[in-house]
Design a protein around this nucleic acid. Structure first.
Lengths: 110, 110
DNA sequence: CGATGACTTAACCATATGGTTGAATGATGC
DNA sequence: GCATCATTCAACCATATGGTTAAGTCATCG
């Protein structure tokens, strides 16, 4: 399924809005893992972790590949790029924070 | 309510995972707006937009202030910073994409 | 080929989300 | 003080989410 740019941001931000999923991405940053390896540290069923992996996959943040009887999962970090760019648009606002405050205070005086 | 760093990422990423809310932030990037002004371009009730604004507020991405009989809403972009930093951790992966591909192909040869 | 291991899928449940309409709140204007 | 405007809150609804357990799939091992 090909997603529009907005839909891709929807699914990426949604995927990131869960601590379990963010933790999975952190783990994958150190290398490939099987589903079982990913699941072990989490206090929930394998099926639940499998669902989280599915959410990450549908956001294209990871890729799953069969290797023998295992599914190996690896990070696809480049799918984060549009999200980072979307946010980066606003970085000028937090950088200019002090400037804005100054202007505001300037306004108050008059 | 003070949120943990993880909970703040949860609420910020969740707030961003909706196109209406992202659009509202874009509008606010050009300046303060009343709730009514924000609602007008959207094809949904004022109450629905009010709910979206509430979600953005609980993520601290905006601030609401009473001004006469209006509530004026303004961007609080600095709350995006932790989200951007979280993502930025992964930028090395998409920057090293070609390197990784090279290494992978190198491995295949042997 | 039958059992085992590694997942995934299905069915189910409780809670959350995103929308609606209609009543409530809280200034402001006569 | 009463009406009106701007907005929020409450109640409701349909669908989505995040978890569970149990059954299904698929590759490997004996």
């Amino acid at each position: 399924m090909v997603k529009s740019s907005a839909a891709r941001l929807d699914s990426v931000f949604h995927a990131l809005a869960d601590p379990t999923r963010r933790q999975i991405l952190r783990e994958l940053a150190t290398g490939e893992r099987t589903v079982g390896e990913i699941a072990t540290p989490h206090k929930m069923s394998l099926a639940a972790v499998s669902k989280h992996i599915k959410v990450l996959e549908s956001a294209e943040l990871i890729a799953r590949e069969r290797r023998g009887s295992f599914r190996i999962v690896r990070l696809q970090a480049q799918s984060l790029k549009p999200a980072e760019e979307w946010i980066a648009f606003y970085s000028r606002f937090w950088n200019q924070q002090l400037d804005n405050l100054e202007k505001y205070l300037e306004g108050e005086k008059s």
